[in-house]
């Protein structure tokens, strides 16, 4: 069974409604390692060796965070800057991550409709996630379609529950080597907003 590393970043989890439940939904899975970055490195003092070893020990890297300013909370960026070293993760000799798969799991305040050319945010989620996609590519990883929970400000308890169950099911698909099924399952959520 493939192993999944959830790189979780939330600077104020104590105030979160959705992310706390999402993490609770998957952390009991025995093929999942949740790495709570803000709990681990409150002073941004990232232990590079520890992080690189974690990456090497897993097959999937899930960047799980709220979608702040069309990107991730600052600690995710710090993590990328420090851990994805040249000569290790990328560059002529940087093959440490080659063949692994990466995806983003994000929550947004805006509704799904806002993330399209005619919406308030003018771009789709996948367009906005291009920096992460290209980061994965440069590190010779495959970038899978994202898992997105929209409208986190108004979401109902039942919807949170459902989102958690879906998150859990999707990670299970990945762990059992059904990445293609995962992509297929995600497709309707990512395209064809017009329909």
């Amino acid at each position: 069974m493939a192993r999944i590393l959830v790189q979780f970043a939330h600077p104020a989890l104590e105030k979160s409604r959705v992310n706390r439940r999402l993490i609770a939904a998957v952390e009991s899975l025995d093929f999942v390692t949740v790495n709570d970055l803000y709990e681990q490195y409150p002073d941004f003092d990232i232990d590079v060796n520890r992080e690189q070893e974690l990456l090497l020990a897993h097959d999937y890297v899930v960047l799980h965070h709220p979608f702040y300013w069309y990107s991730a909370p600052a600690l995710i960026k710090q993590w990328e800057d420090l851990v994805l070293e040249h000569g290790w993760a990328y560059g002529r000799t940087g093959n440490a991550l080659a063949g692994k798969r990466m995806l983003s799991v994000i929550t947004t305040g805006g509704q799904r409709e806002a993330y399209q050319e005619t919406g308030a945010n003018r771009y789709t989620i996948q367009q906005l996630l291009v920096p992460f996609e290209q980061t994965a590519r440069l590190c010779r990883m495959e970038y899978l379609p994202p898992f997105v929970v929209h409208g986190s400000l108004r979401i109902t308890e039942a919807e949170i529950e459902a989102a958690g169950a879906r998150y859990r099911a999707l990670l299970t698909l990945l762990a059992t080597g059904q990445a293609a099924e995962y992509a297929a399952a995600q497709a309707p959520f990512l395209t064809d907003l017009a329909h």
């Binding site: 800057d81 851990v83 070293e85 040249h86 560059g91």
Partner: peptide, 12 residues
């Protein structure tokens, strides 16, 4: 600050 050190990048 290895992460922000671009010596090796410059060489490559």
């Amino acid at each position: 600050d290895e992460g922000w050190d671009n010596d090796s990048l410059r060489q490559e």
